[in-house]
Amino acid sequence: MKRYLYIFVLLSSIFSFAQTEVKILADTNQVFIGDIINLNILVNSSEQILWPDIEEVISPLEIQNLSSVDSSFVNSQYEYSQNLSVQQFDTGLVVLPQLPFVGVENDTFYSDSLFFSFLAVPLDTTNAIFDIKSPKKVPFNFAEAKPYIYGFVGFILLSLLVYYLIRRFKKKDTAIEELVELIPCEIEAINALKNLESQSLCEKGLVKDHYVQLTTILRRYFDREYEIDTLESTTDETIEALKIQKLDAKLINSISDLLTEADYVKFAKSKPNAKTNNVFMRKSYSIVEDCHKLKEEAQNV
């Protein structure tokens, strides 16, 4: 009886072990260097398996493609499956070691090790040697050129916009200048002299103001007629600048007399009599007229 009991315990212990089967199926075990070998890992177990990190354990083979682990539970059996593609870039024999699969009850199951042979590509040395092939010409692709085309068009449009704005502002400036130039300098001066005369400042005792305005009118006229900065020049400098314009000596003297007399009034409290004021007023008209006449004659020549 004791003997049967031993046999029962022994058999029961055998049957109580987990039933686990690990298979790795390869489509081939011999390929050329760089070619792909497809593997299928199948695990059939009565207990749940903790799936290993295949990438780590499969080294030195390089994984090209790795599917997710497929699992199912059928007839009290857990079935696991994973597909992967591997390749190798060295020639020779590579051993895929036994892969460990650990069960939840801490049992470890190993697959069988596999051998793969990676062969070098055979060279046909009997053929003639050919040149290295030149790079392949890629046909024009509009999608690739699109950003450059858009950028170029954008740049052209921006440039046109800037050009248009500059032209517009310049036109405005020119418009103002043209407006000023519409009144010829001699007419402007004569009108200003008439306006000054009509104010009768000397009769009102404002002799200094009269001469200040009179010289300002004449200096502004010289400024426009001869393009010399008379408003920022002293009497001597103005006369020197006018001499360069090759004016008649008599006319220069006349201008000099007037400006000098005006300086006396402005800076030395001189008060010329009414007759002198009138003479200088008439002289101012003739200075403007004579200067303009001479300028026109010079231009015609």
């Binding site: 002293t234 009497t235 800076f267 030395a268």
Partner: peptide, 10 residues
């Protein structure tokens, strides 16, 4: 001269 003119300043 008993008075100053702009020429003197300059």
């Amino acid at each position: 001269r008993g008075y100053v003119i702009p020429e003197d300043v300059r």
